[in-house]
Computed example of a mutant assay.
Amino acid sequence: MKTINTRFGEVEYDPSHVIHFPEGLIGLDQLKHFLVMPNQKQGPLFWIQSVDDPAFAFVVTDPTNFFPDYAVLPDAEERRKLEIDENGTCFVLAIVTVSQNKEITLNLSGPILYAPETKKGLQVVLEDPRYDIRTPLPKVE
């Protein structure tokens, strides 16, 4: 077990549970190792915490909780980077942002692909005009 000091306090973790992002995240390519932080509250949001720089942590979610038709499938090159084949499990996550006026948005144009079998992650850029880096949550009627 290893320990890091984070905004959540001292966190003990098993290095075998670390998610490795070989290319880092967009704009943060130096951050390559993350932990999934246990969710303290019920709900669809959770944190990923950088092991490389404990000052960085992000809220993420499964975007299909809010956008049921949202679907991203890794292409051959992305599967190679994730070290999975066509049948390998791949989860899609979106980074969540809360603005100063409390508007919650999801980065649907830059989702994170995560392969649990290999513990590899990859952030990709979608060329789809329907999605934005700050896509507001759908209005509840």
Score class of each variant (00 low, 15 high):
Pro111Thr: 04
Ile48Leu: 07
Arg7Glu: 06
Leu73Pro: 00
Pro15Lys: 04
Asn65Lys: 14
Asn39Pro: 08
Ser99Ile: 03
Met1Leu: 11
Arg130Ser: 13
Lys139Glu: 15
Gln42Val: 10
Val11Leu: 12
Asp128Ala: 07
Met37Val: 11
Asp53Arg: 10
Tyr131Met: 05
Val92Pro: 03
Val72Lys: 00
Pro136Val: 10
Gly9Asn: 08
Val60Trp: 03
Gln42His: 11
Thr118Phe: 07
Tyr131Ser: 03
Thr3Leu: 13
Thr61Ile: 03
Ala94Trp: 00
Phe21His: 01
Ala71Arg: 14
Lys120Ser: 04
Val96Met: 07
Phe58Asp: 01
Ser99Ala: 14
Asp85Ser: 14
Ile84Phe: 06
Glu83Gly: 11
Ser50Thr: 06
Leu25Met: 15
Asn87Lys: 15
Phe91Ser: 10
Glu141Lys: 13
Val18Gln: 04
Val98Thr: 13
Phe56Met: 10
Pro116Tyr: 03
Glu23Ala: 15
Val72Asn: 00
Glu103Asp: 12
Pro54Thr: 11
Glu117Asp: 12
Trp47Val: 09
Phe66Ala: 04
Thr105Leu: 06
Val11Trp: 05
Trp47His: 09
Glu117Pro: 00
Phe91Val: 02
Pro22Lys: 07
Leu126Arg: 01
Phe46Tyr: 08
Phe8Glu: 00
Val36Ala: 11
Pro111Glu: 03
Leu126Thr: 05
Thr3Tyr: 10
Pro44Arg: 07
Tyr13Pro: 05
Ile95Asp: 00
Ile104Met: 15
Glu83Val: 04
Leu93Pro: 00
